[in-house]
C-alpha cells in the first residue's frame, strides 16, 4: 500500500508542469479522435450506402472491404501503414498542413495514424449506419419509390434522416472506443499522452528533484481517460433510452466490438 500511496511517490504531480504536460498529451489524443471520427463519418456513410445498394457489383466488394478492415486489429493496421506509407506522401502532408494545427499534427508521422484510424473506424461506422438504415420499415423505402422519388432523393429525404438518427447512440459509444484507441499511436512515436507519460517517467530524481514512478504516472493517465469516457458512456446510454422511447425499435448492435456490447448491456 505504501508503494501505491506514499506521498513522495505522488509529489511529481504537483511539481512544475508535470500535470500540464500530461493534459497537453491528452489533448492530442482527443483532437485525433475527433478528426478521425469526422473523416470516418464521411467515409462510413459512403461505405454504408454501397453496402445497402441493390446492385451486387457494388454491394459485394463493399461488404468484403468493410469486413476485412473491421476484423483486423487496429494496431496491425497502424503498424503496417507506418511502414508502407511513402515518404513523399508524408512530405506533401507536411507541406499542406495548416500552420494553426497543433504541433503533433505538423509531423508527417501522424498521417499513418489518421489514415489507419479512419480505415478501421469508417468500416465500423459503416456497419453501425447499415444497421440503422436497415432498422427502418421496408414501407418507408417503398413509399418513397411509389411517390416517384429517385434513389438519391429518397435516401436524402426519407431514409437517411430517420436511419442515421437511430445510430447516434452507437456512434457516441464508438467514440469511446476511438478515444481509447488513440493511445495506440504512441507506437508510431507520435507525441501524445502515453509518450508524455513515458518521458515524465524517465525523469531521474537527479534532474527533476523528485522521483516519478511510472505506476503513478499511468494511474493518472488512466484516471483522465476514465473520467472522459465515463461522461461519454452516460451520454450514449441516455441517447439510446431516449431514442428507443421515441421509435420503440431496437437497432441491432454491431458485432465484435466491446463498446457496442457495452451499449447493449447498459440499457437493459
Amino acid at each position: 500500500m505504501d508503494y501505491l500511496f506514499a506521498p513522495d511517490r505522488w509529489e511529481w504531480l504537483f511539481m512544475g508542469n508535470s500535470f500540464r504536460f500530461l493534459i497537453d498529451g491528452l489533448l492530442v489524443n482527443i483532437e485525433l479522435a475527433l478528426i478521425a471520427m469526422a473523416l470516418s463519418l464521411a467515409v462510413g456513410l459512403l461505405l454504408a450506402l454501397a453496402r445497402t445498394a441493390k446492385k451486387p457489383m457494388i454491394k459485394g466488394p463493399a461488404g468484403i472491404w468493410i469486413d476485412v478492415w473491421r476484423n483486423l486489429p487496429l494496431i496491425f493496421i497502424l503498424l503496417y501503414l507506418s511502414l508502407s506509407i511513402p515518404g513523399s506522401w508524408k512530405e506533401s502532408y507536411q507541406d499542406s498542413v495548416p500552420s494553426w494545427f497543433p504541433e503533433a499534427f505538423q509531423n508527417g508521422r501522424i498521417l499513418a495514424a489518421i489514415v489507419g484510424l479512419t480505415l478501421y473506424n469508417s468500416a465500423v461506422i459503416a456497419e453501425i449506419m447499415r444497421a440503422g438504415i436497415q432498422s427502418l420499415e421496408r414501407g418507408q423505402g417503398e413509399a418513397a419509390a411509389a411517390l416517384g422519388l429517385p434513389y438519391w432523393k429518397s435516401m436524402r429525404l426519407i431514409i437517411l434522416p430517420q436511419g442515421l438518427r437511430r445510430m447516434v447512440p452507437a456512434t457516441v459509444s464508438q467514440l469511446i472506443t476511438l478515444n481509447k484507441d488513440t493511445t495506440l499511436i504512441s507506437i508510431l512515436s507520435i507525441q501524445e499522452v502515453m509518450r508524455h507519460g513515458r518521458i515524465l517517467g524517465s525523469c531521474l530524481p537527479f534532474t527533476c528533484g523528485v522521483e516519478v514512478p511510472l505506476l503513478q504516472v499511468f494511474l493518472v493517465v488512466g484516471a483522465m481517460f476514465a473520467l472522459l469516457n465515463y461522461g461519454l458512456s452516460r451520454l450514449s446510454k441516455r441517447l439510446e433510452i431516449k431514442q428507443r422511447e421515441a421509435t420503440g425499435i431496437e437497432v441491432e448492435k454491431v458485432t465484435g466490438l466491446e463498446d457496442q456490447v457495452r451499449l447493449e448491456t447498459d440499457t437493459k
Binding site: 507519460g197 499511468f218 488512466g222 481517460f225
Partner: peptide
C-alpha cells in the same frame, strides 16, 4: 471499461 487497454498494460508491466 473506460481506461485504454494500453494504459492497463503499462500499469501492470511497469507498475
Amino acid at each position: 471499461r473506460n481506461i485504454p487497454l494500453l494504459v492497463l498494460i503499462f500499469i501492470f508491466y511497469f507498475g
